[in-house]
Amino acid sequence: MSTGWKAVAIAAVLSAGVLALSDGLGEARAEYGDVVMNNYSDAAGMRPAVFPHWFHRVRFRCKVCHSDLGFKFKAGGNEINMLKIIDGQFCGACHNGSVAWSVENCDLCHSAKPGTPTQVHESTINLLGGAEAGPAGAAATSPGGGRASATGKK
């Protein structure tokens, strides 16, 4: 291979690498299905809580939380607070130091940027234009029911 062709090949490889990096890392893109809960966090001076669906579904089927534990399919719709968690409800069924880390590890869950609204990240409703795009009051209230969608700030 001549020096000229080598230079062209190296330049091509480098520019492809730069393109690949700028393609993936340039944009802010959390994982699909990441739920942010900010019902009370901002007001309490805590970072909003992040619930990563991807992490949990590796370990638990949907029915564990959405049937056994009664989580509605609606971001922010369960009105979870720390009292309920310490009482063993919702997240507290596992986050009790037995199945998963316990409540004194505040920063592990309360890990979103301050001011991030309650939402399902990358959800269709988010992509269609944020909380305003969602139907008002469409959430079902029966146990295990409801919808998993962005709701905006409460």
Binding site: Y32, G33, H53, R57, C62, F73, V120, E122, S123, T124, I125, L128, A133, G134, P135, A138, G146, R147, A148, S149, A150
Partner: peptide
């Protein structure tokens, strides 16, 4: 469904998107 009802409760939020 696109508004997050019916199949859209999960599809478009956590299971494969719409």
């Amino acid at each position: 469904i696109l508004k997050g009802e019916q199949c859209g409760v999960c599809h478009g939020a956590v299971s494969f998107p719409l």
